[in-house]
Each structure stands twice: as structure tokens, then as C-alpha cells.
Write a protein that binds this DNA or RNA. Structure first.
Length: 494
RNA sequence: GGGCCGUUAGCUCAGCUGGUAGAGCAGCAGACUCUUAAUCUGCGGGUCGAAGGUUCGAUCCCUUCACGGCUCACCA
């Protein structure tokens, strides 16, 4: 792989020769007077400007060199004129400083004949030498796999990548601020759990050596956050990194961030009102406008978001009235009558609630672009949610659907310990029958509930999806700095 | 997990019906004092993802494998 013509070897040779001349090519620090963005706003004629950054471009014209520096704030052109320094220094820059190296430069701001604001360099210093060449200056790094595996290159080469991650940070901050301002306290709950609960999902399994027990990575923070409420906290939230051992595709990653909050004495209706205020505030802060552009669509958050029950949506899209099909078999018959294909759904294994959910996902959800609330979920899909007082087959629950994605899932929490036990027992039975995603019986959580819990409404949001929505991305890997990828072993054998 | 597609120089990409590979950028040597993907001359750089198979001959056809992308299913 390496020979004398290989760029990497050439650069290593350069380092050797730099070191032999008594210069350390890896400095420990650097002072500057401006970052590059601020330097780019200085008046021509400003003297003694000290800058540093990574060299991104170098154009040599014999006795004049144009180059481009990049730092976190931006880019600025620099120019070296052979008249402005000892010839040896000029030659050194020409021969020994490569694209990708970090340099310090000192000089005066001026405007080139072509009008570009530029630093005229009188003095410079090599701060750190790179040995691998950067990707090509015009196309940069394009391939999603390379960009994900070598995110640092993606960040260097594609300014929109850096902007996207800065936007992610801002969104998290705005979410956090809003919750803080509304009296919520940020808490931290365990990632390693003996019984992964709070969602219907397959967990990652690991092992604790000294306790000699299997542990699981959390699939949701829900039951721990509710323990906090039982313990007297009234409003808590957590940005919870969660892990689900399921298939990967553009809208699912193994490790994702779930924001959950819990508020004592609220029901799901209170929470719907809050949600609308909350999300509108975030979008306004981050985006400036309540109408966002997403791919070829416009998504409008500005109006009052409509709410639909499962029943209404399914009547609208299929003509089937859930109230007229009390049993799963009745519903199945109606589905068949209308030639609606639920391909690959194993209708024998799933219950009525799940069948309704599948039907909704097939016929209604793909058409739900603008924000809307979905309410009255089948109770057997919501083992931790409160049963509706008027209709015991549905839960006091809502989802916010945007762009066919379930962005928010929230409900009035079930706080009746006897009923909670029964519901979890039923889940445990389903689990025994082979439903890997049925919820786990968590005795400790029920015991907590038996000591008494106030009325609670809980709320959860898939942060990565929300960010993808606000950054116009279709693949969640674009909004996670270092998404999980299968290790690439080919490079390790060299 | 299934289906479809992809993997060629450091990067971005060509490569015809099978005759063992090209360009641009980057690099090296040289010219050049205003470039904006600078230009000009010359040069070097490849296990064509991997392993088998068919063939006189494979980047190309076949099989298997690896990695990825899209998609279906599960899910947020």
C-alpha cells in the first residue's frame, strides 16, 4: 500500500525533514485575534490579525500563493507574497505545507484585485501536519457510508453537515429550555436494566460479571420516570438514549434518543394542549416560521392541529366502522371484503387492537402529512396507559403524526396498581406465547405504584426523527454523528 | 430477514458484444505575482470489494461471501 509515490509516505517524509530542521510539526497551542468569520468582517487595512485553521485549498503562482483557511466559524482566503517574507519561509510554505494541515498566520487584511477579502500573510507557523489527503475539493465526500463511517471528513468537507449538527444541538437546547421554563426537572435514570420495560420492543442483552446477571439496555425510560413522580417529583423529563434490537432502515436506528416527560395531575387532554404550544414554540425558535419545507412538501404547523380517533380515520379511509366489528374476526372479514391487503402481517398471531393498528398504518398514516393528533388507541396496545372512562376498549392516549411519522406518543398514565398488575400479567402471557415484544412483568414498578401515584400524563418524542424533519433529512443516520455500522474489517488487515 | 441495486486510483466518476484499465481533482517535478473547481508541460499512482467457477483469456459472464444503499416486514 505504501511506496515512495504514495501521498501519505511523501507527507511522512516531509514530517521527518521538518523535524530534522528543528521544527516540531505538532504544536501544543495557538493564540489568535479573531476567528475566521469575524476576520472576514474586518476592514481592509486591519493590521496584526492572527488567525489559525485548517488549510483547505492552495494555489501556487510562483511568487504568490493563495490559500484558504477553515475553522469552525467559517473560511477565509489568505495570500502569501514572496516579498513579504524571507524566500526560504515562502518556499517552505510552498513545499511543506499541504492541504489538510493546521496553520497559524499573521498579517494584514486586504482586498484582492478580484475583490475577495484576504489576509496578507507576513508570518506563519505550522501547527499540525496531516498525512492523509482530504477528499477532493469540488465534490467532497458524497457516499453515505463513507460519510457515516468517517464523519470527521463529512464535517470537514460538507458545511451543510456541520450546520445540520449545530441545528440538532440547538433543537435539543430549545426543547430543554422550554421544559425547564415550565417547571420540569431533568433527571437521569438507568440505561442498564434488569427488566427492560416501558415499550413494546426487543432489547439488547448484556451481562454483568461480578453480579453474574444478565442485564438489558433500556428500551424506554418510562417506568423509572414514573417512579420519580411517585417519589414526589411532579414534573420530570429525560433525554433518554434508548436501544432497540430491531431492524435498521432509514427511519430506525439501534441507538436513538427518546425525550420523555411526565407531569403529575395532568391528563392526556392537558398534555395535548401543552404539546401544541410546545412544538409550535420549538419550530418557531428553530425554523423561524411554522411552515417547514420537507423534501417536496410543505408541512404547516400553524393552524390548530386536528384530532382524529382511530375509528374516524378507518371509516374515512376504508369505510369500515370499528364499532360494528366487535371481534377481531368480524374486522378481518370486513378487511377481506374490501380487498385491503395487509401483506406479511400474521393476522392469526395478533389481537384485535394490533389489527386495527396495522390497518391504520396501511391505509391512513401514509396520507397524514400536516400535524394531527390521533386518539383513542386500542387498549391492548397500551399496557401502561389509562383506560378511557366511557369506552373501556380504548386508552386515554394520543399520538402526534407528522409526515406519516409518529413524532409524539403520550397518554394519561395508568395509576391503578391492581389493574396495572392484571394488564402486565396479560402481557407476560402473550410473551410466553412467543410475542417477543410484549411487555415484561416488572414487579418492582407495580410495587411502587401500590404505594400510590398521583394522576400523571406522560409524553415521549423520537428526537432523531423530529430533528430529521426539521433538517429536511429522510435518513436518521444523517442526524446522528456516529451511527452504528457493521465494522469494516478490510482496512484492519493492511 | 426478503427483493432490487451498488462496490474501479486518496476523492468524484468513465470503462462498448469478454482481449488484464481511463479522466478530473489531489500528489510529485517544472513554469507562472490576483486565483475562485486557476492555467500550462511532464511524471508516478490500481489485488477493478473477496474467493471460487466458465473461458485460450474475466473489471465485464456464473456462484458464494463481505460491506453498503433503497425497499418490504417489525418498530420510534
Amino acid at each position: 500500500m505504501s511506496n515512495q509515490h504514495d501521498e501519505r509516505s511523501i507527507r511522512i517524509e516531509k514530517i521527518k525533514s521538518i523535524k530534522e530542521s528543528g521544527i516540531n510539526p505538532y504544536k501544543d497551542r495557538c493564540d489568535t485575534t479573531h476567528n475566521l468569520e469575524k476576520a472576514g468582517k474586518l476592514e481592509p487595512g486591519t493590521k496584526d490579525v492572527e488567525l489559525c485553521g485548517r488549510l483547505m485549498l492552495k494555489r501556487v503562482f510562483g511568487k504568490l500563493i493563495f490559500a484558504s483557511l477553515k475553522d469552525f466559524s467559517g473560511r477565509l482566503q489568505i495570500a502569501l507574497n514572496i516579498k513579504d517574507m524571507e524566500q526560504e519561509r515562502f518556499k517552505f510554505f510552498q513545499k511543506m505545507i499541504d492541504i489538510g494541515d493546521f496553520v497559524y498566520v499573521k498579517g494584514e487584511i486586504f482586498r484582492t484585485e478580484k475583490g475577495e477579502l484576504t489576509l496578507r500573510v507576513f508570518d506563519y507557523k505550522l501547527l499540525s501536519k496531516a498525512i492523509n489527503p482530504l477528499p477532493e475539493k469540488f465534490h467532497g465526500l458524497i457516499d453515505l457510508e463513507s460519510r457515516s463511517r468517517q464523519r470527521y471528513l463529512d464535517l470537514i468537507m460538507n458545511t451543510e453537515t456541520q450546520e445540520r449538527f449545530i441545528k440538532r444541538i440547538k433543537i435539543l437546547k430549545v426543547l430543554r429550555n422550554f421544559l425547564d421554563e415550565n417547571g420540569f426537572l431533568e433527571v437521569e435514570t438507568p440505561v442498564l436494566q434488569a427488566k427492560p420495560s416501558g415499550a413494546m420492543a426487543k432489547p439488547f442483552k448484556t451481562h454483568h460479571n461480578s453480579l453474574d446477571i444478565d442485564l438489558f439496555l433500556r428500551i424506554a425510560p418510562e417506568t423509572y420516570l414514573k417512579r420519580c413522580i411517585a417519589g414526589g417529583f411532579e414534573r420530570v423529563y429525560e433525554f433518554a438514549r434508548c436501544f432497540r434490537n430491531e431492524g435498521m432502515d432509514p427511519s430506525h436506528i439501534q441507538e436513538f434518543t427518546l425525550l420523555e416527560f411526565y407531569c403529575a395531575y395532568w391528563n392526556y387532554r392537558d398534555n395535548m394542549l401543552f404539546t401544541q404550544k410546545f412544538i409550535k414554540h420549538i419550530i418557531k425558535e428553530v425554523n423561524g416560521s411554522l411552515e417547514i419545507e420537507y423534501k417536496d412538501k410543505k408541512i404547516d404547523f400553524s393552524s390548530d392541529w386536528p384530532e382524529y380517533t382511530f375509528r374516524e380515520l378507518i371509516i374515512e379511509h376504508t369505510g369500515i366502522d370499528l364499532e360494528c366489528c366487535e371481534s377481531k374476526d368480524d374486522l378481518l372479514e370486513e378487511i377481506k371484503k374490501r380487498n385491503i391487503e395487509l401483506e406479511e402481517v400474521d393476522v392469526d398471531k395478533i389481537g384485535r387492537g394490533n389489527l386495527i393498528d396495522q390497518l391504520y398504518k396501511k391505509v391512513a398514516r401514509p396520507k397524514m402529512i400536516n400535524p394531527q393528533f390521533l386518539i383513542q388507541h386500542p387498549i391492548d396496545l397500551s399496557p401502561l396507559a389509562r383506560k378511557n372512562d366511557d369506552n373501556p376498549s380504548v386508552a386515554d392516549r394520543f399520538q402526534l403524526v407528522v409526515n406519516s411519522w409518529e413524532i409524539v406518543n403520550a397518554y394519561s398514565e395508568l395509576i391503578d396498581p391492581v389493574e396495572q398488575r392484571e394488564r402486565l400479567v396479560r402481557q407476560a402471557e402473550a410473551r410466553k406465547k412467543g410475542d417477543e415484544e410484549a411487555m415484561i412483568m416488572e414487579e418492582d414498578f407495580i410495587q411502587c405504584m401500590e404505594y400510590g401515584m398521583p394522576p400523571i400524563s406522560g409524553w415521549g418524542m423520537g428526537i432523531d426523527r423530529f430533528i430529521a424533519l426539521l433538517t429536511n433529512q429522510e435518513n436518521l443516520r444523517e442526524v446522528v454523528l456516529f451511527p452504528l455500522m457493521r465494522p469494516d474489517n478490510s482496512a484492519e488487515n493492511t
